[in-house]
Design a binder for these strands. Structure first.
Ligand code: FES
Ligand code: FES
Lengths: 143, 143
DNA sequence: TATATTTAAGAATAAGGAGTCTTAATTCTT
DNA sequence: AAGAATTAAGACTCCTTATTCTTAAATATA
């Protein structure tokens, strides 16, 4: 459902929130190391997050990225939209051209509910909540 | 979420149910034409449905496929499993190695509910129900 | 039995996403 | 001012999936 780029971006945002919140600047290189992933791949996705206004970036020594908003103001759906787009929430599960209550496919009325629930979950879950939960449950943010 | 092969397979099964139920043999060529899709691509996916025991196939003139079970006994999840597999329902939304209540990621507890709901929907929705609904609502099965 | 029709199987090709690398631009530090 | 560190941008390769095609096997029908 989410692309690998999107999954990794969410994990990166979680790490950035955990490690620096909206204050500290964190080098992308550090994020890649902690997430045990490719710097190249992560850096490319981080660029999209910057363009989407979720991160500020700073070049040069001591450069890196930091949250562009408060952790409670960045929702999962913002990250998904920046990386994968919202196509998933707008298109038919069976691949028909239109997807609306007016032009439903065979399972539109059933699927629509589930999809809305997922959208709601992504829209209401903030980075602050996730990181808070993880710290509370003693889950390693990077696994 | 579903591959294009899976979407098309579901549509094909809906058409086969609508046009022939469990009795009549329908050529794959006819299905491809009605669904306005590639015969080659559809035929390959139909083979998987045959191997999965959802369809019987018959070679030669007057050959084709028909449902291997009653329409009320074929669930959406069976088609999804045959074409895409159940990986979606077993793997972490953020791409972590394990996905279980014992080893949850940052959003496992939230996501798990949604995923179960989708699985339930796919498990409880039969071809008979879909085709019945469509006929009741006067929706064209092939769009 | 010969022919036409249809599925079966797998090879071949195209397209798209994933992942890597190179070069440029910026900025801190000395 | 020079050099090092870091992001920005885009080209490039690789891999998986999607899609098409070719050949083989089976079977109904004349
Ligand atoms: S029309 Fe198919 S899910 Fe909406
Ligand atoms: S561990 Fe991430 S969704 Fe289950």
């Amino acid at each position: 459902m989410l692309s690998s780029a999107c999954k990794e971006s969410i994990r990166a945002m979680i790490y950035i929130t955990h490690a620096g919140g909206e204050r500290k600047i964190i080098p992308v290189k550090e994020v890649a190391e902690k997430l045990d992933t490719s710097f190249y791949f992560l850096a490319k996705n981080v660029q999209k997050l910057v363009k989407a206004g979720l991160l500020f970036s700073y070049k040069g020594p001591k450069g890196g990225v930091k949250l562009a908003k408060k952790p409670e103001e960045i929702m999962l759906i913002d990250i998904v939209e920046a990386i994968d787009g919202l196509e998933f929430f707008e298109t038919c599960l069976l691949g028909f051209k239109d997807c609306s209550d007016e032009h439903p496919c065979a399972i539109h009325h059933k699927w629509s509910d589930k999809r809305k629930a997922i959208y709601k979950m992504f829209s209401e879950t903030s980075l602050k909540e996730i990181v808070g939960d993880m710290e509370k449950l003693c889950i390693n943010v990077v696994f």
